[in-house]
Design a protein around this nucleic acid. Structure first.
Lengths: 112, 112
DNA sequence: TACATATATTCGGATAATCGAATATAGTTT
DNA sequence: AAACTATATTCGATTATCCGAATATATGTA
């Protein structure tokens, strides 16, 4: 039985992954998991130019990973769903375990 | 206190996300979660040309998301860590919930 | 060895992502 | 309104990704 062709949900799913697929955006998400923050606060924390942070935040916003709220002239961004952090944490654990396995393989073959 | 600059782990983390960021690769992973499969079997299931499947599998292999094992002239691919499916499932749930929220927002404003 | 099957790779072109630099917009204060 | 602060956007160039088509490699078999 052939699978249905790539359906809409799968495209959206891939879009979410794409939004996560940048080291700066991952840092932004972890920073927002801590607490909501202004754009400038994020830029300073991560040592990035403000326009760069804004552009990354837009991408995260378009995927409904963060929300924004005005606070005077500033805009406060917050994480929309903390399960995204669980997702990132699990992925990181999978990655670390894979690296450990590879490292063991190397040792077992006398490459340590 | 400024964060450390983007460290190695974060780059690897982003690479994993990047590997997940394609609808065809997501389908491949779900298909392999079911059971290990040959390249051709995957290609037929997903109605994709064999070279396309091979290229996607290489990307997944490079990120240690799948492993391959020879079986005669065929090569059997399998999922390396099933937690990746948990990750994908949670992401999909987050996505569906976000879509539901958006849909409710539209209705509440008379756009239904 | 010759042939068949299964998988992997390369090439070229199209599409998309990212960044720095410059600039535009929105809200606040005087 | 003018000046200021915070945020967002655009532009142009660079780099990365993806695909179809063609081809190469590897294993098994006659």
């Amino acid at each position: 039985m052939a699978y249905p062709p790539l359906h809409e949900l799968n495209l959206l799913h891939a879009n979410i992954c794409q939004a996560l697929a940048d080291p700066k955006r991952i840092l932004i998400l972890y920073a927002l998991a801590d607490e909501p923050r202004h754009v400038t606060a994020l830029a300073e924390m991560l040592c990035l130019p403000q326009p760069t942070v804004s552009r990354h935040l837009r991408i995260l916003r378009q995927q409904s990973l963060v929300t924004s709220e005005r606070d005077g002239t500033a805009v406060v961004y917050s994480l929309l769903d903390h399960r995204i952090i669980d997702v990132l944490d699990t992925m990181r654990q999978v990655m670390v375990d894979a690296l450990a396995r590879q490292s063991n393989l190397l040792e077992d073959n006398g490459f340590s």
